[in-house]
């Protein structure tokens, strides 16, 4: 459990790194958007890692069961919200990309910049 705990945090760190790298380094807009989802996914992992309790189960209270251990419901609620925010951002970004392609004929950021200067 100890090892898995640290491993969770490290995977969070690595995913954060991979996603953020794509956001900064890629010029392709779809790639940037996908990088953003990885980046956000990493944060989901951070929150959900917090909710785990040893020997616990999902926080759905069973009638008649006493002394049951439940995982923490609050981070779950927060991440439900964040997931929905994430897809909303993706959808809007994608619509922008479609319009950008129609207007510029490319979805590479450096090329749109070059076209704007001309």
């Amino acid at each position: 459990m100890e090892l898995l705990g640290l491993f969770n945090y490290w995977v969070f760190a690595v995913l954060l790194m991979v996603g953020f790298y794509a956001v900064i380094a890629k010029t392709n807009m779809v790639k940037k958007l996908l990088g953003l989802s990885i980046f956000q996914g990493a944060v989901f992992l951070l929150y959900i890692t917090m909710d785990k309790v040893d020997g616990g189960t999902a926080p759905i209270i069973q009638p008649g069961v006493v002394d049951a251990i439940y995982s923490n419901p609050l981070p779950q609620v927060l991440i439900l919200t964040a997931i929905v925010v994430g897809i909303s951002t993706t959808a809007l970004g994608l619509a922008l990309i479609v319009r950008i392609y129609e207007a510029y004929g490319t979805i590479e950021e450096d090329e749109t910049q070059r076209l704007d200067i001309e």
């Binding site: 953020f20 956001v23 807009m29 940037k32 958007l33 953003l36 980046f39 956000q40 944060v43 951002t89 809007l92 970004g93 922008l96 990309i97 319009r99 950008i100 207007a103 510029y104 950021e109 749109t112 910049q113 704007d116």
Partner: peptide, 19 residues
């Protein structure tokens, strides 16, 4: 059309900031 690229850039940076 610059509005589209400006909005996209803002979307990326704004989401990074919020995250």
């Amino acid at each position: 059309r610059r509005a589209l690229t400006a909005a996209f850039k803002y979307l990326i940076m704004g989401t990074v900031g919020a995250t």
